[in-house]
């Protein structure tokens, strides 16, 4: 239904507005503004790409805008070599952490939206608050806890951490989304003899796709980009990509071309997710977290 609204909204505006000179001028200005803003937004990208294709001796902060005098894949290859192992770590980390926190959030959201009970609001608030804590504040207790649980230094520990701190936001998004699904639908299912889980599986889950898209995009980006946990609770062979990216720079000599190439490579997966799922992201937002 969300999708329909988005599509419908395109039609009437064009049919109503007359195609006068004034209208055309307006459109022209609109596109100029949008193009201008796009260029401003893309300036940093240009800089990253240009630097990535330079060799180290061409890299200097005073010539940062110049085109490389000769293109080279050297920096990208070097960055790729060094980032490859941690790329797989990040994949192994991000997939289960995203999926599990999404499913857990969905179940929680289902309970909070459809199975209200005494103190539900309080519990929800308590869960939600977890979203806002500064993570540096829990670092030392977290490390001690994970060591106690024999999870320290492994990807499993990091996955658990990301699942836990992802719960508040996933619960929030799903709860708001499910609140919009008519309760009568669930009640009807209940009268037909459906149980808690069968209602979830057959009534709620099939309607959840837009919310899952939002949650997956959000969690994927957050976990992929996270650095602080990644550096403190992993060991050498379980480092995620952001940590490897930092390690590209030495404490003495920074090879900016490799740095920028590495930054570009690290950002690729999340960029792809945004480009491929971008349109669903807006629809999901529309259907989910927007209340009114």
């Amino acid at each position: 239904m969300a999708v329909q609204q988005a599509v419908v909204s395109h039609l009437p505006a064009t049919s109503v507005t007359p195609k006068t000179v004034q209208y055309r001028l307006g459109r022209f200005v609109l596109y100029i503004i949008l193009l201008g803003l796009s260029i401003l937004f893309l300036i940093p990208v240009y800089m990253v790409l240009v630097t990535s294709f330079k060799s180290l001796d061409q890299v200097s902060i005073s010539t940062m805008w110049d085109f490389p005098s000769r293109f080279t894949w050297e920096s990208i290859r070097k960055a790729a070599d060094q980032l490859a192992p941690s790329f797989f770590n990040s994949v192994v980390l991000v997939l289960p952490a995203t999926i599990i926190s999404a499913i857990a959030g969905s179940l929680n959201g289902y309970v909070f939206a459809k199975w209200r009970f005494r103190g539900a609001n309080l519990l929800f608030t308590l869960i939600l608050f977890g979203m806002f804590i500064p993570y540096q504040a829990v670092l030392i207790p977290l490390v001690k806890f994970l060591q106690w649980a024999d999870l320290y230094g492994s990807l499993n520990g990091l996955i658990l951490t990301h699942i836990v701190y992802g719960l508040p936001i996933t619960t929030l998004i799903f709860r708001n989304y499910y609140a919009k699904i008519p309760t009568e639908l669930v009640e009807a299912g209940l009268l037909d003899g459906g149980g808690f889980f069968s209602l979830y599986l057959y009534v709620i889950l099939p309607l959840s796709v837009p919310a899952f898209v939002v949650v997956i995009i959000w969690q994927f980006t957050q976990i992929w980009n996270e650095f602080l946990f990644g550096v403190t609770i992993t060991s050498v062979d379980s480092r995620p990509m952001t940590v490897a990216l930092q390690n590209l720079s030495g404490s003495q000599i920074v090879e900016w071309n490799v740095q920028m190439a590495g930054a570009f490579l690290t950002a690729l997966p999340t960029l792809l997710v945004y480009i491929i799922l971008g349109r669903y992201f807006i629809r999901g937002l529309l259907a989910g977290s927007v209340k009114g």
Partner: peptide, 9 residues
């Protein structure tokens, strides 16, 4: 898209 980048980058 800038939303997809990490703050470190």
């Amino acid at each position: 898209f800038p939303m997809a980048l990490s703050f470190v980058v």
